[in-house]
Design a binder for these strands. Structure first.
Lengths: 194, 194
DNA sequence: GCGATTGATGTCAGTTACTGACATAAGCAT
DNA sequence: ATGCTTATGTCAGTAACTGACATCAATCGC
């Protein structure tokens, strides 16, 4: 007989997401989340630094995928090519079977400014990590930072489209299209109005 | 004889910034801020929705500068040209005499994750507003969003450099350079390593 | 002029996120 | 067995934030 049911962390994450989704983030108390899986508020805060972080736990895993992508990019690639490789590599994490879960998660985040803030901070830290990896490869600033920021922007926009209800394409396809759009933005002479 | 000293809002802002700078954001309580200018905690929260917002009050003013810049951009300009015009226009707000104040403010924000989160949210809302203005001018998505995001990224990076201790150049000069870097990123065939 | 209204503030009680200190008990090593 | 570690519980406390109600100068309507 075990003293505690295992997987407290995972149960808390699942319960939190469900509650945030069903009754809203602000309307959910941490005590509720904890009690719903037979734990106490104190235990919640031992696993997650705050009420928002439950939703973002495990980010580091996929962030590493991006960093590895930078290292694995072919020798002699341009900064933007390296970043493209990093984004595509990091996106391998988001397989088709995670799409539904990602959608629910994203809906909760979008509906809650407090969670959007946290997500933006995570993205900023991802961009900073990529920029650091670029610098280690010899890319100077501001090109390194600019490329990293552009890469995460492309990722965010592609990811958003990937989650759209009727979207059938692959995240990676969407990312390639978005990188092409970025190139067109500075390269093309297209006129937008007149 | 007046019933209250005028400018409660401004006094609270100044006091908050000073306290955040001198003893840190977390170590400062709202009660302290309010008492330091002879007001109560309750009054603080009537002026600012939360403890972070004191630092960001008045953002809307300069955000409007960016939007106006979109409207004022010449007819027939490309999306990125419009955004460039918007960023340069909005940056007129940051005159030389605001530099010292901006530096102190920025130092506090950089040192405090909670404030960085809020700043990122403000930037995201600025980007969304610019993208909306672009769409009104007929720029389709994803070009509109991508251009707006790129523009705010350039702004952030140029602004950061503008605040560096020994920086002598104008914000607008730095922004032009950064836009050039952005163009070089997608356009150049420069190799970064080998 | 003078009562009614408004607006910025104060007071106070309450909720909830979060923290530190200490207690408990299962499992594991020696 | 004994002690150590680990995941949890208990409890008391702080501080951010909110709602309800009170106050009182300025000002508006007449």
């Amino acid at each position: 007989m075990v003293r505690w049911e295992p997987g407290a962390r995972e149960r808390l994450q699942a319960a939190a997401l469900d509650l945030y989704a069903s009754k809203g983030f602000e309307e959910t108390t941490v005590v509720e989340i904890a009690q719903s899986v037979d734990l106490t508020e104190r235990t919640f805060f031992r696993h997650f630094v705050d009420k928002r972080e439950v939703i973002f736990a495990g980010q580091d895993v996929f962030q590493q995928g991006f960093i590895d992508g930078v290292a694995d990019a072919p020798h002699g690639a341009s900064p933007l090519e390296i970043v493209t490789s990093a984004v595509l590599a990091g996106s391998g994490f988001f397989t088709e079977d995670r799409r539904t879960h990602s959608r629910q998660r994203s809906a909760v985040i979008t509906a809650t400014p407090e969670l959007r803030e946290r997500e933006l901070l995570k993205m900023a830290s991802l961009a900073a990590a990529i920029a650091g990896a670029l610098r280690e490869r010899g890319v100077p600033d501001p090109a390194a930072t600019l490329a990293a920021e552009s890469g995460t922007t492309v990722f965010r926009m592609a990811f958003e489209r990937w989650l759209e209800p009727d979207s059938k394409r692959t995240l990676i396809e969407l990312e390639r299209e978005m990188f092409a759009e970025l190139a067109a933005l500075t390269g093309s002479t297209a006129r937008s109005d007149q």
